[in-house]
């Protein structure tokens, strides 16, 4: 008996010998690439940097994420320290990064850096995770984090709050731009995890009523520099 892979691929090839009609489209696609053809019809991500920043701020607000715009790294460090103080955070987890080193410097509590094979329980007990990101997507209010640039997989999901520190030049208009940036930035090997985070964790599973912080962070703060 042939192995399952051979069998399934043979079934597929046999099935595809008969062509299927195209879907009933409303208009002929202007571009032969389906994804490029869709881009002009998706939500707007802004034509200019300022427009993108405005859309990003609106989207984050609707998502119940908190956006803090600051002029420079020093102001970012102060904003983060104020936040930690106001929330009464005792221990914050972070990862090694030159930007974060400066921004975390003023924190009034313990800063615990995740390292290889860190203790999961210890991370779970942290009040917040502070990470950088690959980019921010204005169109949808999303932040793209990765296992390479944001301290692995758990740091941005396990602690009770998540703080993303980003610079204004990291804001891209739409999802297609974000994906292009990822591809260009990572060359041959993608990080093992890339995650678009769009607002704090949420669920509507009980009577379709929105509750924040289902399993992931209850709070999402974005500190945007510049």
């Amino acid at each position: 008996m042939a192995d399952a892979r051979t069998d399934i691929l043979a079934r597929i090839r046999e099935a595809l010998k008969v062509k299927a009609p195209r879907p009933h489209l409303r208009a002929e696609p202007g571009d032969p690439s389906p994804s490029k053809a869709g881009r002009p019809w998706l939500p707007d991500g802004g034509e200019t940097r300022e427009a993108s920043l405005t859309i990003l701020a609106e989207q984050l607000a609707k998502l119940k994420a908190v956006l803090l715009r600051v002029p420079d790294r020093a102001a970012a460090a102060k904003a983060l320290a104020d936040l930690a103080g106001a929330k009464g955070w005792k221990r914050v987890a972070s990862h090694s990064d030159s930007l974060l080193e400066e921004v975390n410097a003023a924190l009034p509590c313990e800063v615990w850096p995740v390292s290889r094979d860190f203790d999961k329980r210890r991370l779970e007990a942290c009040d917040a995770g502070v990470t950088t990101c690959e980019c921010l997507v204005a169109q949808l209010g999303s932040a793209l984090v990765s296992s390479r640039s944001s301290g692995g997989r758990a740091l941005s999901i396990l602690p009770h709050a998540h703080v993303i520190v980003a610079t204004a030049d990291q804001v891209v208009p739409d999802l297609a731009d974000a994906l292009a940036k990822v591809r260009a930035g990572n060359g041959g090997e993608m990080p093992s995890m890339l995650s678009f985070i769009t607002g704090p964790s949420r669920t509507g599973d009980i009577e379709r009523i929105l509750v924040l912080g289902a399993h992931g962070p209850k709070e999402l703060h974005v500190i945007l520099i510049g």
């Binding site: 094979d117 949808l140 296992s147 390479r148 692995g152 093992s192 995650s195």
Partner: peptide, 21 residues
């Protein structure tokens, strides 16, 4: 929703330069 909260792409197990996974 504009986008669900987490849209995550996985491409393999933990890499050498990553702390977890």
């Amino acid at each position: 929703q504009p986008m669900t909260c987490y849209n995550t792409f996985y491409s393999g197990p933990k890499r050498r330069d990553e702390p977890d996974g």
